[in-house]
Design a protein around this nucleic acid. Structure first.
Lengths: 236, 236
DNA sequence: AAAATGCAAATTGTGTACAATAAAAAAATA
DNA sequence: TATTTTTTTATTGTACACAATTTGCATTTT
């Protein structure tokens, strides 16, 4: 038995992350140590360490003597999300434009290709994960230890919220998705040019598009939620 | 053997946190599992879980097969800090003013009393910890899961940076400390009144004061660091 | 003497057994 | 029958033993 366990450990970690991001494990789902331990041929000790790590990153919540459960989502967290997201996203993209390395820009372009492919022929989960990966890269570009924790936490719930509308139900959503893709391209251009102002503005635009989609889903019947009061996206 | 281990575990956790915040364990210090295990009469299994948790909160960094070490600090992280702090602090205090409960306001007043006591007769570590506690409470008031991770991460390094100037060396620093205390009082007032705008502005003021102290220490010889370009504090 | 190689000691990661706690079920009481 | 108490079962937490990896040191080699 060499370092097979190490591999299984990181596999488990990735598996849990994608399962949570794609809602295969919904918010509030209890994670069973015994069954996961068996499934991944890993003893409970390293398994529990993975739980602790995921808890630190915000994927799960740990309850004393009552195991791990997938982080919950409520209308309160949605309100918090609408408040924090534009601020953090704006800062991250601005810093990304400032600090991105050529290698990272390549990574970003690659992530965008994957995203486009997922739009053409992927599942909702594929799209959410590809989109998530794109934004993860921008986070690495920004490279600020103090902003990344919140940014990553936002990305988790953005993916989960997104999973509810990444399977387009009508023409509006299809159009929104291709617009999102176009914005990704614009973001790449801005970052490559080191244009901080443009990147920052694109973050707002991108956020507002996402916001519109979320509102569309969350209150299809026109239910009125108190969702803050940001400037809408700039005219094209 | 009942739940004594549970207690030892949280004790260890608190001990490590305060040791790191007060620089008793400096940035980059290696944490030895064996000796800590013996000191706290705790086996390595729960000890390692504590490490993972602290890593999630940003206190330590975990390196594969090479143990835990206290999170490092460099000029780069300091630059990141100057960039992220005003933004996050502003948002947190604004939200605190919006959402604080009476019970939390009591907590905040209590924390401020402890802080004042520490200013009168406490050590540098006492002051840093009391100040940290005060701001922790504001974080709980803000109660936004997406902002708290970054806020808490900032508080860690703010305490550590602060430890270098919480033992006043000259008259300027003594004056700054009493001004910081006065600002805390003003913050309490703004939060109690639910005055978001005032709280937000006080966050900037409080940050700028802290910023001046840090600059004073970091570059006592007038070394020029690229430290961003925020508006200075508002005139009293 | 400097660099490279191999060995020994220390440190970290995992597996498993057992203890403690919480949840569920069964029995007892009103 | 409803409620409380007790017993059973399942799950979580800790301790220790062993495996694997890294590190430091001594030796060899150029």
């Amino acid at each position: 038995m060499k370092d097979a366990a190490r591999l299984r450990k990181s596999e488990l970690c990735e598996h849990l992350k994608t399962s949570i991001l794609t809602l295969a494990l919904g918010p509030g789902t209890d994670l069973d140590e015994a069954s996961l331990s068996e499934e991944f041929a890993l003893s409970r000790t390293p398994l529990r360490e993975v739980f602790r790590q995921l808890a630190g990153e915000g994927y799960v919540e740990l309850r004393e003597n009552r195991g791990a459960r997938v982080s919950g989502m409520s209308y309160t967290t949605l309100r918090d999300f609408f408040l924090a997201a534009p601020m953090i996203y704006g800062a991250i993209l601005q810093l990304a434009a400032k600090n991105a390395t050529p290698a990272q820009i390549d990574q970003l372009k690659q992530a965008q290709e994957v995203f486009k492919a997922a739009l053409r022929s992927g599942s909702g989960a594929d799209r959410a994960m590809a989109n998530n990966q794109f934004h993860e890269v921008t986070g690495e570009m920004a490279d600020n230890v103090y902003l990344l924790p919140s940014f990553r936490r936002l990305l988790i719930d953005h993916a989960r919220i997104g999973m509810t509308f990444y399977r387009p139900q009508d023409a509006t959503m299809v159009e929104n998705l291709s617009e999102a893709s176009a914005q990704h391209d614009a973001i790449i251009t801005a970052i490559e040019a080191g244009d901080e102002a443009a990147a920052s503005q694109l973050a707002i635009d991108h956020w507002n598009l996402s916001r519109d989609q979320i509102e569309l889903f969350v209150m299809p019947d026109g239910l009125d939620l108190p969702l803050g009061s940001m400037a809408r996206k700039t005219p094209a």
